[in-house]
Amino acid sequence: MESDKNTAVISVIGKDRVGIIAGVSALLCKNNININDISQTILDDIFTMIMLVDLKDNDIENSDITEQLNKLGEELGVAITIQHTDLFNRMHRI
């Protein structure tokens, strides 16, 4: 079944500009969320970043991390989502 690890996937998609990674990283640092892995590409001018993060003691539904990321996304002009890793494991692995 689901893993015991409290990890999440953060995705950032939008037009490339200065400070996207810095902004997201700073916000995660402030919330004591550790970044385990980052991959980033630019496809047809669209900035696409996927982060695997360790939520530690945070949980998504009882914190305002989603709202904080949404607000930052608006400031940076990109779409940011956070989703628990179990969703992806469940959908793509038998």
């Binding site: 996937v9 995705s11 991959s39 996927i50 989502t81 969703l87 992806f88 959908m91 692995r93």
Partner: peptide, 12 residues
């Protein structure tokens, strides 16, 4: 490990 492709497919 979940691939970037799978993550983007899910989001779409």
């Amino acid at each position: 490990m979940i691939t970037d492709f799978e993550i983007l497919e899910t989001m779409k």
